[in-house]
């Protein structure tokens, strides 16, 4: 008889992989709680003072807000562009040229560092777009391919005759999109939101080029801080970034439901 229990070697390997993934995080969390003025592990003495220090440094306070604003607005705009784009690409798959779908995922293929530099040249230097706006445009473009891909995958299994049925019953096409199509790809929209938000929140390469005097994002500020100081603030801010990421997932899970992960 086949056993439902996994093979012992498989268990060991899985455990090792998890260990490999988790140990750096444990070290970061440990270092963040250290009472010393330098980064160390295991922590010597327990203190939350380096967490307090994040908020004492105005650059961190500002960049956390900027990062959240950029991530939220960038994701929102990417959804506003990406959902209709994904819809059109799937609904008119036969009529539209094939390369159009590829066009939307092309930014993923361009190295982010090149993408960031290109945006700097065109937006900031070329068009003189203000820093915050350039960051927002950059992040919107950065996450758009993920949004289009994830929602396209959701729409690929959507039966468009359902939409036709609703229209035949008297529901106007635009209204049908919101009452029939969108509720049925909700899981895809949620997944796209989380993926886009986290990608934006943790981005370094694109932001590196687009941040400027007075306006920066949290990951860039962490880099800048490490260049000058070696205190545990950088560990505590990393923990905070992790916490923000988890919090976003938790909030989305609570409000919209993460049931798609089980599907």
């Amino acid at each position: 008889m086949m056993s439902d229990r996994p093979h012992p070697i498989l268990v060991v390997i899985a455990a090792l992989v998890y260990l490999f993934l988790m140990v750096p995080l444990v070290i970061v969390v440990g270092a963040a709680l250290s009472d010393t003025t330098y980064l160390t592990f295991p922590p010597q003495g327990l203190s939350l003072r380096w967490f307090e220090n994040i908020f004492a440094i105005s650059a961190f306070r500002r960049t956390i807000v900027t990062s959240l604003q950029i991530a939220f607005l960038g994701t929102l705009f990417a959804l506003l562009i990406g959902i209709p784009a994904a819809y059109a690409l799937n609904r008119f798959r036969v009529e539209l040229p094939k390369w159009l779908g590829t066009l939307f995922v092309l930014p993923i293929l361009v190295p982010e560092i090149v993408f960031g530099f290109a945006l700097l040249k065109s937006l900031t230097v070329g068009a003189g777009v203000p820093i915050f706006l350039a960051l927002l445009v950059g992040h919107t473009l950065l996450v758009l391919p993920y949004v289009v891909r994830v929602i396209s995958a959701s729409l690929a299994s959507f039966d468009f005759s359902i939409e036709e049925a609703a229209i035949s019953l008297g529901s106007a096409p635009v209204k049908t999109f919101f009452t029939i199509v969108l509720p049925n790809v909700r899981a895809g929209v949620i997944a796209a939101f989380i993926l886009a938000f986290i990608t934006s929140l943790n981005d370094v390469s694109v932001s590196l080029f687009l941040t400027g005097p007075g306006i920066s994002t949290l990951p860039i500020q962490i880099l800048a801080h490490v260049e000058q100081f070696f205190d545990p603030t950088v560990a505590s801010v990393s923990v905070l970034l992790m916490f923000l990421t988890v919090a976003v997932m938790a909030i989305v899970e609570r409000t919209l439901g993460l049931t798609f992960l089980a599907k």
């Binding site: 005759s161 049925a165 609703a166 229209i167 035949s168 008297g170 509720p183 049925n184």
Partner: peptide, 20 residues
Amino acid sequence: LPTHKRDIGLVFQNYALFPH
């Protein structure tokens, strides 16, 4: 006339019921 103003009842091969 656009479809939604035609007032026609349609029955599809794959039923096309609203799953939600």
